[in-house]
Amino acid sequence: MDYLSLFVKSIFVDNMIFAYFLGMCSFLAVSKNVKTAFGLGIAVIFVILVTLPINYLLNKFFLTPGAMSWISPALADLDLSFLSFIIFIAVIAAITQLVEMIVEKFSPALYSSLGIFLPLIAVNCAVMGASLFMQERDFANLGYATVYALGSGIGWFLAIVAIAAIREKLAYSNVPKPLKGLGISFIITGLMGIAFMSFMGIQL
């Protein structure tokens, strides 16, 4: 499996939203207009891209059974994998906080457009999910993990922008009243998911 294939697959075939429903909460809350959706999407790509390689290294050198043998052979039996959830979420929360502070200091313009979304991202399932999938799939090296991070971030970004565009137009259509807003958004996301399933057969 080469990098390009992994990249395309993580964007289209194993799309975070349409195949795994990760990050749906902020997805439905923020996808009302394209501009904010765009901002959140970029922020998510960025945070996944930073946190996933860090978690990959932590997982590889500290958390998997026997991973600490590089410090001293006496630690070869140590299995810290039960700590992985807490470490991953701590890294994600810390990085989001850090990113928020850095962006605020160096680019106030970007901060004013992204700032409000950054705290939301710490509890975005797509970010945590990417780290957990990374652990489960056991990527061979840091390169694959980074490419996967970029791909799944872009996949999430594409999904939220596409749905936001549809929802903007939807405001003018005549939907049955009880289905308005939330209900129809769910159904449209489902239909988009079916459309994305046609990517499943692609081979690279």
Binding site: M1, K9, F133, E136, R137, D138, A140
Partner: peptide, 14 residues
């Protein structure tokens, strides 16, 4: 009958 294990890398994981 004799049983032989196999192991490899799939699309996503082992």
């Amino acid at each position: 009958v004799e049983i032989f294990p196999i192991y490899g890398a799939g699309l996503w994981g082992p």
